[in-house]
Design a protein around this nucleic acid. Structure first.
Lengths: 219, 219
DNA sequence: TATTTGTGTAAAGTTTTTGTAAATTCTATC
DNA sequence: GATAGAATTTACAAAAACTTTACACAAATA
């Protein structure tokens, strides 16, 4: 089970080089050229963010990440002068690396951070396929935007998310979410699945129907 | 817990960009397009003043501020030539930044000033969405005006404020604020939430109802 | 292809939950 | 113990959520 790293870097060359090196080092690495789409992606084990990006700057992405998770973040800063300033600011990232940097150094810092954080890393939010559920806040984000769910909808999604990839029968779902067995047949579960899919929009497609069995979130 | 910054800058674009960056950096920032209204507002932790303003220039605002407070002030100066002149005069501001400036640099200087002036920032008051609760003074402000709360109302608000963004069940609220469990059903919590919302006026809308769960402040 | 079985979904009907005014009980203070 | 203000309960209206029904549609089966 290799660890996942998301890299956000607009310079194509740098991105390709770093991704290649990360793969060589045994990480599962995914690159983005801009902030768009980053937060739709499930939360990885570590982020590497360029502080200067075309659309949205690295800091604003950092803020959003920190809103849902305390996953380690490494910021890439441009020039020497800016680097010291940013580093001194302590904006909430775990490490700052000045460009140009050696790939080996980057990887060694990544490993250090993962070692350090791996211990008591408490994930605040569950994530999958653009869906994020923060149980403390009782808040759900689909593709980055908040979604208002009713009580049962939320409970159902939470159950699916905590069992992502697992096939769940209607009986099991009813037991867990409703807490008792319905008598006859009813479309209640289907009904709530429908509402969920609808409210989650695009991301709702990750809720799969298993004909004759029940439902499943993701692969 | 966040520090307040007032920005006076007539250029809409610059004002928006800087305000955005300040918010991203975790400050509570408020912008004015001209000098009017600035001094009516409560004194923040730091001012940023453009030296060239339509009605009243930044220097006269600076004078007035210095008349009542020694709060840090950063002046924004236009071009290179003027910058040096102003800087050499030492007009009483704590720092001078020439336009165009990098937002990162501005924020770094702000932090430096706040660190220097405030020492260790003693944060007495919690703030969110126009509601301020100063536990030392046991005083609550809603949209800037004092609100008289009863004991239970205050305790309830304080609990909500210290857990802003967190979903709180009625049981939890009762445990913490009332200290014991009610027997049967009762509308007591709802009742106090209602009074709070009423007394807080506009700002009361930040207390959200989570149907089937409880309540939550903000987010 | 025809049939059967299972699922999606809109809409109606029912239940649950919350908001709120008013009545009642409690508590501190004089 | 009288009184005023606060806290709690009661009762009901309003709003929101939940379940069921009914039927269309899709997939599996014969």
């Amino acid at each position: 089970m290799s660890q996942k790293i998301v890299l956000v870097e607009d310079d194509d060359d740098i991105r390709e080089i770093v991704l290649y090196a990360l793969h060589q080092a045994g990480f599962e690495a995914l690159g983005f050229a801009s902030g768009a789409g980053v937060l739709v992606h499930p939360v990885p084990d570590l982020y590497i963010l360029d502080i200067m990006l075309p659309d949205e700057d690295g800091l604003s992405i950092l803020k959003k990440i920190r809103g849902v998770s305390s996953v380690p973040v490494i910021m890439l800063t441009a020039k020497g002068s800016e680097h010291d300033k940013v580093k001194g600011l302590d904006l909430g990232a775990d490490d700052y690396i000045a460009k140009p940097f050696g790939v080996m150094e980057l990887i060694s810092r990544i490993k250090a951070l993962l070692r350090r954080s791996g211990g008591v890393q408490k994930e605040l939010a569950l994530s999958h396929g653009g869906i994020t559920i923060d149980h403390a806040k009782r808040q759900v984000l689909a593709s980055g935007t908040p979604v208002a769910l009713t009580f049962k909808e939320y409970e159902l999604l939470h159950y699916l998310m905590t069992n992502k990839g697992i096939a769940l029968s209607r009986d099991k779902i009813v037991d867990v979410v409703w807490g008792y067995d319905f008598e006859g047949e009813s479309r209640t579960v289907d009904m709530h699945i429908k509402s969920l899919r609808q409210k989650l929009g695009m991301a709702g497609e990750h809720i799969k129907t298993l004909r004759g069995v029940g439902y499943k979130l993701g692969e």
